[in-house]
Design a binder for these strands. Structure first.
Lengths: 197, 197
DNA sequence: CCGATTCGGAAACGAACGCTCCCAAATGGA
DNA sequence: TCCATTTGGGAGCGTTCGTTTCCGAATCGG
């Protein structure tokens, strides 16, 4: 009953996230969010309670979407290592994006807010745990198939750490080729039949 | 001639950096910097011109110090790989620091400001270039000594990317053991005589 | 010991901050 | 067709922002 909303919450969350992502959370004012989303200041507070709450919601939406996309990529690939390579290609593409939303929103928030905002930190820690499970599962399948070597969880930690490192480089600017070259060296070290040495 | 300064610029830069680092640059006000440094607002502006300028100076001081420390670590070690291991131990220690200045200041600034502040970005890009040369040189020596395998510059990019990735994890909290385990897997993949498979 | 020069710091600037309030507009059930 | 209820939005709340201004204090060459 009563008057229905005129805006699509997902669209508003996307636009708010991009604003936070481009300029930093603290540097993004409510009036800037109003411009970015098309909602008035009062409507933003009616719908999202506070700036911190809105930020947390954009992050939760982002991490959920990112994990779902990664799960599709990893499980839809022809083999575990093919899945990892597809993941890396997507990361390299996002990292070499010239827009101010290049890199990874979760990395931006981890760096700027995780040490000071308990709520953000909790979302990121939970995301990390689930992401690690996803990647470790793929690595385990790769080890079983003889494509990869090492202890799956430790290897998964290395993979996600390296991806995050590339996302940091992305904030300063990195080419697609340099990002992929890094991933190539990484994978070469985790492959049993590598013709090095 | 004229009245001498009553403060030590290095001490003030250290305290300002820690304030930026803990809370984020945008979220750190001039009055907070005044409290942290002991200088009055007017004195800060007389000595450092602006908040952005002060931030850039803290970063330049930090990156110079970090590179000098790493150079000492890498060149003072018994072997190239021993140098890398010493580097990783220092990173893991800084990453598992429970204080809000855990992780790496350069990563914090890369994530929060590099995409929007040209000056900060330039400092970080320059730092990256020099850091990469330093690490690549060590890797090259390691390859020559038969301790490491791969193309030195690409391997160096992987090492620095992984280190930055651990620094991102540090902002959310990571144990010393988990950080070191990640580095162990990384090095195992870059070592010719590893008993895996 | 004086005068040029710099420093330290309190007060104040206009602007922008996050947020609340209030009211008109829009809806569905009675 | 009202009426209860929720939305949209603009004006305004008190506070804090980054920065400037101004002036007494301190120093050193003359």
């Amino acid at each position: 009953m009563a008057r229905p909303r005129e805006f699509d919450e997902d669209v508003v969350l996307d636009r708010a996230r991009n604003a936070f992502w481009s300029n930093g959370v603290a540097a993004t004012s409510i009036s800037a969010l109003s411009s970015a989303t098309g909602l008035s200041v009062g409507s933003i507070y009616k719908a999202f309670a506070s700036k911190d709450q809105l930020c947390a919601m954009t992050l939760e939406d982002y991490t959920d979407t990112a994990r779902a996309g990664l799960a599709d990529t990893l499980r839809g690939a022809a083999s575990p290592t093919a899945g990892l390579r597809a993941w890396f290609k997507g990361i390299a593409a996002a990292a070499s994006d010239p827009s101010p939303t290049r890199g990874c929103y979760a990395v931006e928030l981890a760096a700027e807010r995780a040490a000071v905002d308990e709520r953000i930190r909790a979302i990121l820690v939970d995301h990390d745990r689930r992401l690690l499970e996803l990647v470790a599962d793929t690595v385990r399948r790769g080890v079983d198939a003889g494509e990869l070597i090492g202890e799956p969880e430790a290897v998964a930690r290395l993979l996600t750490a390296t991806v995050n490192g590339i996302q940091v480089e992305a904030r300063k600017g990195i080419s697609y080729a340099d990002a992929m070259a890094t991933f190539d060296v990484l994978l070469a070290g985790l492959t049993p039949t590598d013709p090095r040495s």
